[in-house]
């Protein structure tokens, strides 16, 4: 055990305790908020005003700077939820359960955002709001998986049981995601040979992808901030009977 501890800093293990986790996230939060604001503002200004327009799609392609980061984030959020759920299931860590619970609504919202921006982008490019494109469909299914986890969580009253059940479900979903992704891709190519493809260029010029990268990192910071805010609320709510929470509230 002591061998193991040397590999990771002490605060990492302290994250397992709700109280310490509350303190640590409280210290990390301002840094992430500043980074998020800086990155998102720079990224949006750069993307909307300075990045060159696409040679075919003109300015309508600029929605990519919201669409792609949210699509990436929606997928990694599911990964985090399933991994946190597994940690909670195996080591019975309360904080991991809380992280998994906080991930679900954020992930669902971001998946909706990815779908909405995809639809808005689809209108000028493909000529219709919705196309049964493989990527859109698998994002929709990801949203369904999120909604299932949220529904299961809210249906079970006991917090511990709810967290465990939701963790099992998200792990089953995690196994299924690659299967769903490939089956949907194959299904699409079976039914309609790739007529609807974005004007794929082999590589974006750096003036285009650098702001995209900034936006992706900014979105991750945004995710970290909203996750920490939700997590802190969750900790306070579940530990409301603990002494330190009472002290904290009495102080204010």
């Amino acid at each position: 055990m002591s061998e193991n501890k040397k590999w990771l800093p002490r605060w990492f293990f302290q994250l397992a305790s709700p109280r310490w986790c509350y303190d640590i996230t409280g210290k990390l939060l301002p840094g992430f908020v500043i980074a998020m604001l800086l990155l998102l503002v720079t990224g949006i200004v750069w993307a909307l005003m300075f990045a060159p327009a696409d040679y075919q799609q003109g300015n309508s392609f600029r929605i990519i700077y919201i669409h792609v980061p949210s699509a990436i984030l929606a997928q990694s959020c599911y990964m985090l939820m399933a991994i946190a759920g597994a940690i909670g299931l195996i080591w019975k860590m309360k904080v991991a359960d809380m992280v998994a619970k906080s991930c679900a609504p954020i992930g669902a919202t971001i998946a909706i955002m990815a779908l909405a921006t995809g639809a808005i982008w689809g209108k000028p490019t493909w000529g219709s709001w919705w196309v049964w494109d493989a990527r859109l469909t698998s994002m929709l299914i990801l949203l369904f998986l999120y909604l299932g986890v949220i529904a299961l969580h809210s249906a079970i009253e006991n917090e511990v049981t709810a967290a465990q059940s939701a963790a099992v479900l998200s792990l089953v979903g995690l196994v299924n995601i690659p299967i769903i992704k490939y089956s949907v891709e194959w299904w699409n190519t079976l039914h309609q040979p790739a007529t609807f493809k974005l004007t794929e260029k082999p590589a974006m010029p750096p003036e285009m992808w650098v702001p995209l990268l900034v936006m992706v990192i900014g979105f991750y910071c945004f995710f970290a901030v909203s996750l920490m805010l939700r997590l802190r609320n969750e900790i306070l709510q579940r530990e409301r009977r603990a002494g330190w929470v009472r002290e904290l509230i009495e102080k204010q």
């Binding site: 299914i141 998986l145 909604l147 299932g148 529904a151 299961l152 479900l169 089956s183 949907v184 079976l190």
Partner: peptide
């Protein structure tokens, strides 16, 4: 109702290859 919400998304690959 909850079962359908949880399970239907997971059924999609089977449906795709079955009809295929």
């Amino acid at each position: 109702v909850l079962i359908s919400l949880l399970v239907l998304p997971l059924y999609i690959p089977v449906l795709i290859f079955g009809t295929g």
